[in-house]
Amino acid sequence: MAMTTSQRARLSKTIQIILFVAIIAAVVLSLDWEKTRYAFFSFEKLGPMFPDMIIVGLKNTIFYTVISFAFGLVVGLLLALMKMASFAPYRWFATAFVEFFRGIPAILVLLAFGFGLPQAFGTTWPQPVNIMLALGLVSSAYIAETLRAGLQAVPKGQTEAARSLGMPAWRAMVTIVIPQAFKIVLPPMTNEIILLTKDSSLAFILGASMAQYEMTKFGRDGIQSLDAGITPLVAAGLFYLVITIPLSLVARKFESRSARTKR
């Protein structure tokens, strides 16, 4: 029997809904709710984690992220300019740097800085400095690529107009090109901060004093010290969302605004 297109579409939708409901039901029925609740949702037992989770953990997560990002931004801008330089060795260096730090896991860089720097150079500064240096360098590799793309997206005529008004090359870059590139790279840069916020959790593998803990470290310790399954990690996860979701919203707002002003 032949079916019309709309009949076929309705049948397919019905089957999908039945399948979906069946899968949900199977999961719900097969779960041991007592154990699941204990493992993931024992929020009532998290009392001892607070307020340190927020006043130390959340604070440090934000602090490490912001400082790393600022450092990454400076190094990234330098690398982006080197990548566009006419002097070839600058380009080689920047390319090698970017490929290296982008290509290896961030955790290796973190370990190298946390344990390697004191061993090799006898540095005695606190562990968070190593954390921020490592995270900053890793993010600078990504930032460099984003900035280069942004700078090159500004039409050449802008530089020509600036130069023909008597601006030296650096002035044209600072006053005319970079502000325009900044608008272009805002959405991808927000993305970069979000990634960095999450990467700051890697800091937990380096030993640190309690005052230097970030959120993931609190979560890890909570698993051992509290009888609450992995709920401490769930709590840490929720606090990451408290940082990253507003950032996403800001990014989206910038995106729609730059889309509106774009000619």
């Binding site: 039409p155 005529g157 802008q158 020509e160 023909s164 008597g166 601006m167 030296p168 502000p179 608008k183």
Partner: peptide, 20 residues
């Protein structure tokens, strides 16, 4: 060159105004 260009005004086909 910068000094010289201060004295030479240039108008482009595509305007090249600074949009920001």
């Amino acid at each position: 060159l910068d000094k010289m260009r201060q004295n030479v005004g240039m108008v482009f086909q595509q305007f090249n105004l600074f949009p920001h």
